[in-house]
Design a protein around this nucleic acid. Structure first.
Length: 483
DNA sequence: ATGTAC
C-alpha cells in the first residue's frame, strides 16, 4: 500500500503532471517507464512538497529512492524567500562528471594487452585505496577549498591557463566558488587531514574513471565537431565527488539543521528530510560549507584527470593530448536566473543541468552550441554526451544523471552472479572491457544488472525534448575505486 | 555517497 493515497496525473507525451496531497510534481519519462516507477518515489515527493513555498519540483526518468529526497530531483525556490536542504543536495556534495579528449583512435586500443597495460599504468599513478596516502602531498587543502582550481600549484595545470579557450585543462565553469571562509574554522583537524589524504582519489560506490570510444550522433554532427569530437576518438570520463570533506559537511549540517527545525517548529512526515530558511544563520552556514565542498569536488576530479593524463603519456608518449571537454556536477544547490522567473535557488540531486544554445549561463566557448551535458551509464554500458534543448526550461534545464538503480546494493549482491557480471563485461573475448579490480566480486553491486537500461532513460530525456545526444561513449576499460 | 550505525 502507499501512504500517499490516491493521486492523479495528467499525461502529455513524456510529461506527467502529478497531483499529490502536498503539491504538484512534474515527471519526465516515457509512459512505460513512468508506469514502472516505485510508488515510494511519489511518497518521497509528497514529503518534500511539505517544505514551505516550493515553486517547482521535477523528476528525471532515472529517479530512484534516496535518503530524504530521491536521486533525480530538481527543487526550486524563489531566491529571496527560499529554503536550503542538505537532504535535497545529497551527501556527496559536488559529485559530478568530467570528460577529457585524447587524439587517440579506438584502433590504437584494439589490443587487449595494451588496454591492460594502460589500466596498470593508471593504477600506478592514481591513488586507489581510501586508506592509502594520496599522491598530492605538496598541495595545500586550505587553498583548494577556498579557491578551487585556482588554489592548485602551477605544476598541476599542465596546459596554459587560458580561461577563454576551451582547450585549457583548467577551463571548467565551476573552477571557483566564493563564500564566507570563516566557516572553515569549525572544521575539525581530522577532517582536514583525511580530506587532504583523499585528494585525487575516486572513492567507492558508483564512482569510476573510464576509457571510452566516441560515436557521434548523426543529427548533432555539427555540435560534435564544434566541440572537437570525432568518431572513434578515445575519451576519458571521470565520476567522483567531494569524498570525506563533503561527507563531513553533509553530516554536521544535517544535524545542526535538524535542531533548528525543532526550534522553528518545521518538519514533514520524514525526519530524515532536513531544511532551513536560506536566510537563517544555519541555512547560510550550510550554503557556505557546501560551496567549500564544491571546490573540493572539482579539484578532486581535476587531479584524477591529471594522474590519468600522466598514465596516457607514459604509455603513448608525450604527444598524447588530454584536453578538457567539460566538468559538470549533479549534486548541488545555487542561485540561478531564469527568464520570466527571475532569481531562483535551484537544488539538483542526481540531476544534470543541460543548457541550450544561446543561454546566457553557458561559458563563452559553448555559448553558440550549449555546453556538453555528461551522463554516465552503468559499468559495461555506454555513457552519453548530450546538449540541452530550449524546451528544457520547464524543468529548469535539469536532465538525468545516469541510468538509475533498479535494485539496492544488497539485493544486487544476492541476485547477480560473478559469471553474469563477467559476461556483461565481455570477459574472455577480444573486446573485453578491462577492469582494474582483481575480483569482480568486490564491485558486483555496480554490475549493469543493478541499473535501469540507460538507453531507455536517454530515450525519455530526448523524447521529452529536454536534451539531444551528441555522442555515445562506449567503454573499453574501467577503473573503480576500492573500499 | 561516507574510514559506515543504536
Amino acid at each position: 500500500m502507499n501512504n500517499v493515497g490516491n493521486f492523479s496525473n495528467m499525461t502529455e507525451g513524456y510529461r506527467h503532471q502529478v497531483k499529490l496531497p502536498a503539491g504538484e510534481l512534474t515527471v519526465y519519462a516515457a509512459q512505460q517507464l513512468f508506469s514502472s516507477l516505485d510508488y515510494k518515489v511519489f511518497e518521497m515527493a509528497n514529503n518534500n512538497l511539505q517544505i514551505p513555498d516550493i515553486s517547482y519540483m521535477g523528476y528525471t526518468p532515472d529517479v530512484h529512492v534516496g535518503v530524504g529526497t530521491c536521486i533525480g530531483t530538481t527543487v526550486v525556490w524563489e531566491a529571496q524567500s527560499g529554503y536550503v536542504s542538505p537532504s535535497i543536495v545529497g551527501s556527496d556534495i559536488g559529485c559530478g562528471m568530467r570528460v577529457h579528449l585524447t587524439n587517440l583512435h579506438k584502433d590504437d586500443l584494439k589490443d587487449l594487452k595494451l588496454r591492460r597495460k594502460l589500466v596498470k599504468a593508471i593504477e600506478k599513478v592514481l591513488p586507489m585505496e581510501a586508506s592509502q596516502r594520496g599522491h598530492f602531498s605538496d598541495i595545500r587543502l586550505e587553498h583548494i577549498v577556498k579557491k578551487g582550481l585556482h588554489g592548485l600549484p602551477k605544476k598541476y595545470i599542465p596546459d596554459s591557463y587560458t580561461p577563454k579557450k576551451s582547450t585549457s585543462l583548467t577551463h571548467v565553469e565551476s573552477s571557483k566558488f566564493t563564500y564566507d571562509e570563516n566557516v572553515l574554522n569549525l572544521v575539525p583537524d581530522m577532517t582536514w587531514h583525511r580530506s587532504h589524504r583523499q585528494l585525487g582519489t575516486l572513492g567507492g560506490g558508483n564512482h569510476f574513471a573510464e576509457i571510452q570510444a566516441i560515436e557521434i550522433a548523426e543529427e548533432n554532427r555539427e555540435v560534435a565537431e564544434a566541440w572537437g569530437l570525432y568518431d572513434g576518438q578515445i575519451a576519458v570520463m571521470i565520476h567522483s565527488g567531494s569524498r570525506a570533506w563533503g561527507g563531513y559537511v553533509s553530516q554536521t549540517s544535517s544535524t545542526a539543521i535538524a535542531k533548528v527545525m525543532q526550534r522553528l517548529g518545521l518538519g514533514t512526515s520524514d525526519p530524515r528530510l532536513v531544511f532551513a530558511p536560506l536566510e537563517h544563520a544555519e541555512g547560510r552556514h550550510y550554503v557556505n560549507m557546501m560551496y567549500s565542498a564544491l571546490n573540493y569536488a572539482v579539484v578532486n576530479r581535476h587531479l584524477i584527470a591529471y594522474a590519468i593524463r600522466e598514465a596516457f603519456r607514459d604509455v603513448f608518449g608525450s604527444k598524447c593530448e588530454f584536453r578538457t571537454l567539460y566538468d559538470l556536477m549533479h549534486n548541488y544547490a545555487w542561485e540561478e536566473s531564469h527568464a520570466e522567473r527571475g532569481s531562483v535557488f535551484v537544488h539538483r540531486k542526481g540531476a544534470t543541468r543541460a543548457l541550450p544554445a544561446g543561454h546566457q549561463d553557458n561559458p563563452k566557448p559553448y555559448m553558440a552550441t550549449g555546453h556538453p551535458a555528461l551522463i554516465p551509464g552503468s559499468m559495461g554500458t555506454a555513457s552519453f554526451i548530450m546538449v540541452g534543448q530550449p524546451e528544457g526550461s520547464d524543468n529548469y534545464y535539469s536532465i538525468c544523471h545516469g541510468a538509475g538503480r533498479v535494485r539496492s546494493r544488497t539485493a544486487t549482491k544476492r541476485l547477480v552472479t560473478v559469471e553474469d557480471f563477467a559476461t556483461a563485461l565481455g570477459v574472455g573475448t577480444a573486446d573485453e572491457i578491462v577492469v582494474n579490480q582483481r575480483s569482480l566480486e568486490s564491485i558486483i553491486d555496480e554490475s549493469p544488472q543493478a541499473y535501469k537500461n540507460v538507453d531507455e532513460i536517454i530515450d525519455s530525456v530526448t523524447g521529452a525534448g529536454l536534451a539531444q545526444v551528441v555522442a555515445k561513449c562506449k567503454p573499453l576499460a574501467a577503473v573503480k575505486g576500492a573500499k
